[in-house]
């Protein structure tokens, strides 16, 4: 296996608010290999977006990275001088955001905003930048790119705006593209098109993609590997197919159970996860998921589990794991 292009080690990002310290990301570690597609899934407020922003050091005050390393090709982004981080942003690691309307500047032409991404890192003439912007718009399948390059964001549809954002992200042929909820603000049909585009681009350009979403279906459509986050921690990780077929953490299992399915029996009620995501100022003792977990045991209340291997390439932070929980459930019924 090749060396990872990005290594996140024990990352902690905290927000110092008046109410207390919010531990938004609390000891997250993972590797990303060149060309890989990695999904990060979890509910709102589980720290997935903050993890992404931390990678580019874009976390806003009062947030701060308090611990850990983010190694990009071996150099630590956390301790890098500001100018060096700026060199990486948009050039080596690009990021696209959730709402493409609010994420594009309303008073600047779309083409100009793409050209700007190139001009920030390379000396190129306006003409070359323009033709490259047109080429990028074509690459993300925007029709009539030659004239569209002169348009303003409000003249684009939602899906086209997100395509333009992706074009902007690809402008400098980055080795990593972080997509933070890229399809959440879009129609379902447009969602599928954007995912297909990202999949094609991943194969054409060999850009590694980190896809952040709360939607398990989106992950299944694009990613090879997935990290499931809960309350600032990774609770389960592994290859997508394995996680889908054989989830070991009760949280992952509940997430999968809460996806509506057309082929499910009508009488089966959709399973929701009881309770609310925990307060990250004072997280629960023991396993952070225990107050909402149906399978908890005595140990979960006071003992905090860390990631343990539960299968080939698969790890879960759980004392029970679904394998045992379901076996006991079966015994109880028998």
């Amino acid at each position: 296996m090749t060396a990872p292009v990005l290594q996140v080690k024990d990352l902690k990002t905290q927000f110092f608010t008046d109410d207390g310290v919010v531990k938004a990301v609390d000891g997250v570690s993972f590797d990303l290999h060149p060309g890989e597609t990695l999904g990060i899934v979890g509910e709102s407020g589980c720290g997935k977006s903050v993890t992404a922003l931390s990678i580019l050091r874009l976390v806003q005050e009062p947030g701060r990275i308090t611990n850990g390393q983010i190694l990009f090709k071996g150099t630590d982004i956390v301790t890098m001088p500001d100018d060096d981080v700026r060199d990486i942003r948009g050039k080596d690691i690009a990021m696209i955001f959730q709402d493409p309307l609010s994420s594009l500047n309303p008073v600047l032409k779309v083409g100009y905003q793409i050209e700007e991404a190139m001009e920030a890192h390379t000396r190129i003439s306006g003409k070359v930048a323009l033709s490259r912007a047109i080429q990028l718009l074509k690459q993300v399948r925007i029709p009539a790119a030659e004239s569209r390059v002169e348009d303003y964001p409000h003249q684009f549809s939602g899906g086209m705006r997100q395509r333009a954002m992706i074009a902007m992200g690809l402008a400098n042929k980055p080795s990593i593209l972080i997509a933070d909820e890229p399809t959440t603000a879009l129609d379902v049909t447009v969602q599928a098109q954007i995912l297909e585009l990202l999949r094609d681009l991943n194969q054409e350009t060999k850009t590694a993609i980190i896809l952040i979403t709360h939607n398990m279906g989106v992950v299944a459509g694009l990613c090879k590997r997935v990290l499931v986050m809960y309350a600032g921690r990774i609770v389960e990780q592994g290859p997508v197919e394995q996680i889908f077929h054989d989830p070991q953490h009760p949280y992952t299992w509940s997430l999968l159970q809460s996806i509506p399915r057309l082929d499910a029996d009508r009488k089966d009620r959709l399973l929701s996860i009881e309770g609310l995501p925990p307060d990250l100022i004072k997280p629960p003792s023991g396993c952070r998921f225990h107050p909402r977990c149906r399978f908890r045991i005595e140990r979960c209340f006071h003992d905090d589990p860390s990631l343990m291997d539960v299968g080939p390439d698969q790890a879960a932070a759980c004392w029970v794991t679904m394998r045992r929980a379901l076996a006991q459930d079966g015994q109880a019924r028998a």
């Binding site: 874009l58 806003q60 060199d87 994420s103 700007e116 920030a120 902007m168």
Partner: peptide, 17 residues
């Protein structure tokens, strides 16, 4: 505070720009 300012920063533009 707007998202597009974050986008601009994510492109690697300097604070002045």
């Amino acid at each position: 505070r707007q998202d597009y300012i974050r986008t601009a920063k994510a492109k690697g533009l300097s604070d002045r720009i």
